[in-house]
């Protein structure tokens, strides 16, 4: 989470991919265990593990880098996609409220979703799987108050 005084940019948390990292860890540990006990590991199995691990890490990183969410002094920005990007800017004035959503597992690892509701009631901006969602909501509400304060004056 990049946070400066007027600006915050977040991407999906790597904690979402915990099951994938766990699978890779299990495979690597199993090979290590076999080697440590003097067992032979077939070349095919080794190559499959390397390929699986590399592919999983590459795909999860690409998936993670594909989206980002930004709060600046005037708007909430959501961007999706790598090659073809879809960017949505929502003025902070049109945001009515926001809440965070975390299940037990997400609470343990401190990541979750944030639902940003707009006054129009036609849509909700969903900020998915970010670290410290309550911190994100706090920052958003701070910026909203700032923006309203600036407008009134």
């Amino acid at each position: 989470m990049k946070e400066e005084e007027n600006f915050i940019r977040v991407r999906s948390s790597r904690k979402v991919y915990f099951p994938v990292y766990l699978m890779i860890l299990i495979l690597v540990f199993t090979i290590g265990f076999a080697k440590f006990n003097g067992k032979e590991v077939s070349n095919l199995a080794l190559r499959l593990v390397v390929f699986f691990s590399a592919a999983c890490i590459a795909v999860t990183e690409i998936h993670r880098l594909a989206n980002y969410y930004e709060i600046n002094s005037g708007s909430l920005v959501t961007s999706k996609g790598i090659f073809s990007k879809t960017t949505r800017r929502v003025d902070l004035i049109s945001v009515s409220d926001a809440d965070s959503d975390q299940n037990v597992w997400q609470r343990l690892l401190n990541y979750g979703d944030v639902n940003v509701r707009l006054f129009s009631k036609e849509s909700t901006v969903l900020v998915k799987n970010i670290n410290n969602p309550s911190g994100f909501v706090d920052f958003l509400e701070g910026k909203m108050a700032e923006k309203k304060g600036t407008k009134n004056s």
């Binding site: 299990i26 495979l27 090979i31 590991v41 077939s42």
Partner: peptide, 21 residues
């Protein structure tokens, strides 16, 4: 699909290393 791929590779390692393959 990802889970089945993991199970397949894990089974292959166990079978070839610990059961003589």
């Amino acid at each position: 699909g990802l889970f089945f791929a993991f199970v397949g590779i894990f089974s292959l390692i166990i079978y070839t290393s610990f059961y003589g393959g």
